[in-house]
Amino acid sequence: MKAAKFEYLRATTVEQALDALSAPGAACKVMAGSQSLGPMLNLRLARPESIVDVSGIEALRTVVESDKSLRVGAAVTHAEIEDGVFAPLRGHMLQDIAGRIAYRAVRNRGTLGGSLAHADPAADWVLAATALGADIEIVSRSGTRRVAMPAFMQGAYTTGLAADELIAAIHVPRQHAGVRWGYYKFCRKTGEFAEASCSAYFDAEARVARIAVGALDGAPCYLTELAGCVAEQGPQAADRESILAALDAVAPGKDAADRALRATVIERCLHQALGE
């Protein structure tokens, strides 16, 4: 299939991009790596009148370290994170996850901001950002606002982003030695979307304990109670039964095979984070 006609603008500054997005009557869509938008255009599922390409905006491609957090530009690619191009991200859990997104060819172009804006329930960045409790920094002509990750994604392919807004960056905590994290996903073959995924993040010093389950029907869900028990009592609190109960509470109605798979994925994620 071939895309329907559209106007194409390659922006060099954020201002230029915002102008395009807020032009009156414009049905304008943001393109970053085009790894999600491209297929949708070709399938004619998306038919914007115009597209503003933000992949070349340098201001969106920086990574800045501050005292407690990292600000990662929205147009940074998965490959750049995987390759450790930005020093502050080397050794961060994001680097490990980046290297396992889809295929290298996709990673060369796909961006962090693009993935979050697209909000595919099975996407790796969506789950990782949820486990990390990341903040999404959003800009428009009216200014800048920040939304915490669980709230940002409202459902499958649905976010709180308005038509004239652009994701500028995401803020994630710096990862110190006391952090324990896990990320486990199950794919039918290398490079495919996950059928079940789980990410865990434990920072005893900051009194943070999160278990996030992905590849659900909508946004990832926290297993809040289970995370709390595990933080207090250790990994043995997460036996198969408690995992299944926690899963049923956030994702009811899954068939036996699906439940069993997801329980295994959560088990293995916790094992990765906390050992036995």
Binding site: R188, D255, A260
Partner: peptide, 12 residues
Amino acid sequence: LTPHRLMAALEG
């Protein structure tokens, strides 16, 4: 024999 079919057989 997808993983889902195999798991369904095991769960069954």
